[in-house]
Design a protein around this nucleic acid. Structure first.
Lengths: 149, 149
DNA sequence: TATTGTTATACTCTATAACTATA
DNA sequence: TATAGTTATAGAGTATAACAATA
């Protein structure tokens, strides 16, 4: 195989990867929006739902958002009553965001629905094919992360 | 296998798919930006580079952008000297966007570099694994598109 | 001095609606 | 009437920089 063909195959992989991602993401985003959230807000809420309270700083790191933007997103979620700010007793510079009772109830309802939606979108692939795809994409994603250091 | 486990696997596939896509996309976006373009502008330019001149209307359809937004993007590319507007002789309502000589030179330089970057990002997967990934993702992407009709 | 989070501000991108000109 | 593209406008989301409080 020539290098040219190789390049072409990588481009093709990028294209099908983009299309699959965008198709799924579009569906998910619509779902979030129906529940009054944008993808960033859902991401923060999901983080707090699954990993417990987090310093704002840390949320910014995980969601890749500047500190000023975190304040903006956290404000919005707090105004919706889905999270609360909690001052850290150890370090008074630090503020935690924690999911509220209402937020927890909310996520308990919509997260399984989100999972179900994803499951339905994935039914084109058999169980075994999904496993293969997961392995390949995990390998790919991890290696790229390594490259970017 | 229970339904629960199934759902979990779909979620996992979504997560690794998102991570891989975002990692690649971030790298590509940075590359575009280094050359003065955002991903949308690159997308339009790539379309014109590979498919020849297109009515603005049609560009909007392919890139999924409202007509007012297309005007905005095309304006920017035109100001950069990378494309030109051409009035249609047959239907005077129609305007084509065509890549300029400068735009063509520009793409002849950066597109192969873009491909090379992608190729390097994909080297974690063997030739055979890339083929598998392409098949799986194509299958997935197509089926989701079908679902959304 | 460095770090956390907030505030103020500006910018980019996109959508919408009203419009012009053509068909 | 319908369509293509433009213009004007507004809004969401993000980044940046200056700042206050704390370490």
């Amino acid at each position: 195989m020539t290098d040219g063909a190789d390049y072409n195959q990588s481009l093709k992989l990028f294209i099908v990867l983009s299309r699959a991602y965008k198709a799924i993401n579009e569906t998910s985003s619509k779902f979030f929006q129906e529940h009054g959230l944008n993808p960033t807000e859902f991401g923060v809420l999901e983080l707090l739902y699954h990993k417990g309270k987090q310093p704002l700083q840390k949320i910014g790191g995980k969601i890749l958002l500047a500190s000023g933007s975190i304040t903006y997103v956290v404000d919005k979620l707090e105004k919706k009553g889905l999270i609360t700010r909690i001052a850290s007793p150890e370090d008074r510079r630090v503020t935690y965001a924690e999911i509220s009772e209402e937020g927890h109830r909310f996520m308990s309802e919509i997260f399984p629905e989100h999972e179900k939606n994803l499951h339905e979108l994935m039914t084109a692939l058999s169980d075994e094919e999904q496993k293969q795809a997961i392995d390949l994409l995990k390998k790919l994603g991890l290696s790229i992360k390594d490259l970017s250091y």
